[in-house]
Design a protein around this nucleic acid. Structure first.
Lengths: 216, 216
DNA sequence: TCCGTTGGCGAATGGCTAGTAGCCGTTCAC
DNA sequence: GTGAACGGCTACTAGCCATTCGCCAACGGA
């Protein structure tokens, strides 16, 4: 009756949408109930109060982002394995790795709600999940380590892996933040331009044959 | 008595701080008044209502960002003039140009409030100023044009100026967004690492003397 | 000295909101 | 069949909030 009842699930979806769009304080229990076609008191059958309703959303955030970066890590090691012992990095490989998490995150409306809710940060009654962790520490550590390994294997050009990770991820996060106002395909297209430029800059190319000093 | 009275000014400062930190709906007129040491009814001597108080903050945002990007444009053309006809770009010059607007924006607490208020976006009663414009369209157009000119003058390496501008600005904006939770000097230090890496990648160096094929 | 203005106050009003209590039709296990 | 649990409702309370009103103390010019 409490947590997994279908009505409770629908209430969670509606609450996520409303809280993320208007903020905790500006959403009344009546608003949430109205989105389900019921009246406010009925919500109290499923949640002890407004704060509990909000609190029930927070684990969704942690779970979503934990899975997101797990999928990114998976795509990374898959790419790494496919490189072989002394591989070159193709632009399409880098794109495939990133789009493995970026494109679903860009298209999923629920992911957009979770992102907005995260961005609202400390506006709710509870502190909420840590944007610094999920949007920076975790993904930065992931990409920093990955770039470091790719540099060590001479797949990428030498550079500060931390700065590289920031410069790689920050433009992508900017596009995600625009996802509810812009065409996803246009955003994906711009992500592609960014990824390609990053590749052009940092990917090592096949060593040129040593120049012959004399022709023929 | 209405707009420029000292008490009205203090009310605007307090409202900016409170609205930006807790959001419009969660701040009461009593909260704002309390921050000035007066009671709620007195606020109505200066503002017709809560919405007018909020609305009075919006021009501050437009003005602040208009001045911000104007100062960036000024620093850019100053750097451009100092390059001379066929100049090389020193890392310190790029840093000086950027820090002309970045460092004040990083340190000024009022700028931080304005940034948070802008980030709250459409949570207030009025639509508010456009974050896409002030945080992306304006600065991107500025840096895009600048990079384009620097590429044309062979100061910067060839590349997509739009992507370059995004890759230059997005990491800086990330640091600004962290400004109320982190040490400003540490953030400035990281900005510096970013600027230096960007310079290392994109700045053209003096053409090396042609390699001699035989030593001595 | 006196009177208008300024800048504040407490009290009252009306609306909205979270949360409670109790009622009622439906379903379903027994 | 029937009774209990389910899932919804209406009605109600208490409290907060924006806003209004009328009052008052201080001040400053005539």
């Amino acid at each position: 009756m409490h947590p997994d009842h279908p009505t409770a699930q629908r209430a969670l979806e509606a609450a996520l949408e409303l809280f993320s769009r208007r903020g905790y304080a500006a959403v009344s229990m009546g608003d949430v109930a109205g989105a389900l076609g019921i009246k406010a008191p009925s919500l109290y059958k499923y949640f002890a109060g407004k704060e509990e309703l909000y609190a029930a959303l927070l684990p969704l955030l942690d779970r979503h982002y934990a899975e997101l970066w797990a999928s990114a890590a998976e795509a990374q090691s898959q790419l790494e394995r496919s490189l072989g012992p002394a591989g070159l990095l193709a632009s399409g490989q880098l794109e495939r790795e990133t789009f493995a998490w970026f494109r679903p995150e860009l298209d999923d409306p629920q992911a957009g709600c979770l992102r907005r809710l995260m961005a609202l940060g400390p506006l709710g009654p509870a502190p909420g999940p840590d944007p610094d962790r999920w949007l920076w520490r975790e993904p930065l550590a992931l990409y920093e380590g990955w770039f470091q390994r790719l540099i060590a294997r001479e797949v990428l050009r030498r550079g500060d892996p931390h700065v590289m990770a920031v410069e790689y991820l920050a433009p992508l996060f900017r596009l995600l933040a625009m996802a509810d106002r812009a065409d996803p395909d246009a955003l994906a297209e711009e992500a592609l331009r960014h990824i390609r430029q990053f590749h052009r800059i940092f990917a090592l190319r096949a060593p040129r044959p040593a120049p012959r000093l004399f022709r023929r």
